[in-house]
Amino acid sequence: MEYLSIVFQEVYKILFLLVPVLVSVAMIVWLDRRVWAFVQKRQGPNVVGPFGLLQSLADALKYIFKEIIIPSSSNKVIFILAPIVTMTLALIAWAVIPFSATQVLADINVGILYLFAVSSLGVYGIIMGGWASNSKYPFLGAIRSAAQMVSYEVSIGVIIINVLLCVGSLNLNDIVIAQQNMWFVIPLFPMFVIFFISALAETNRPPFDLPEAEAELVAGYQTEYSGMMYAMFWLGEYANILLMCAMGAILFLGGWMSPIDVYPFTLVPGAIWLILKILLLFILFALVKAIVPRYRYDQLMRLGWKVFLPLSLIWVVLTASYLFYFNLLPVN
């Protein structure tokens, strides 16, 4: 009985985390379309509900009532598994995100490695979907996406090493607390820029959305999907984008800490600050989508391997030598 009550308590905590995440994913889709529209001097979705806030809910209802079509020559098990894998991986990563010093579902020692591992697994949903569809466009999209995500993961990993050198711990809460005096965005500004661009590529956002480039590949790996399965891909994608924003906020923008450590700001709970920082990064994501043209594939690969990787490696050497020379290495 005691064991069951612990299980229920955990389930309650998980629901309390996941339901807001899912609702905010729906809201963020609306925000994305709205920002995109404003940049182009349009109105965007503004009909359903106040300011069109309920647009995503209406879309979700539409997807639920649509028929799920499974192509007859597809590999059915993997075809159905693919959107499930995408969405599950996008959601389990939220377990380690700290919303304040105590509000975290799993305060594990290797939090940042866990985040990195889960985001690197995200490519499987896309590969599985692309391969199982047994069709040309999804397959090409999946291959593009696999190569792209593996390449940009490398530079994200090296950037994380930069931050870890300054922190001396893999725990996400320790990373946030290490930024008490100065956010890492100031000393590591070039790394923040590279992280932001790599995050765009890692989540297949424009200008790096070649896996689903509609002019060339219809909808890439999602071409054969319909109804709720398509919606799950879509939810997983946006949950991943939010996750990358959260990662950027924790690594560079001080996570749940208030910008200035003075009285009225410290009253605001940490979760609000984290959400504001995530929103700021997300609006940047949306603006980039609206103002930048799509990259060509060879340019994308060149940027990842020949520009970002050497730059971030050089920055690791610089950070390490600086910390070592001025005796600032975190020793505990």
């Binding site: 490695l113 690197s120 697994l121 291959i143 696999a146 593996v150």
Partner: peptide, 22 residues
């Protein structure tokens, strides 16, 4: 061995197996 487990996920599942699949 949490570090080893995570590195296993990142290196083998995140990179090596993707290339295998590829």
């Amino acid at each position: 061995a949490e570090f080893l487990g995570m590195i296993m996920l990142i290196v083998y599942v995140g990179a090596v197996a993707v290339l295998f699949l590829f």
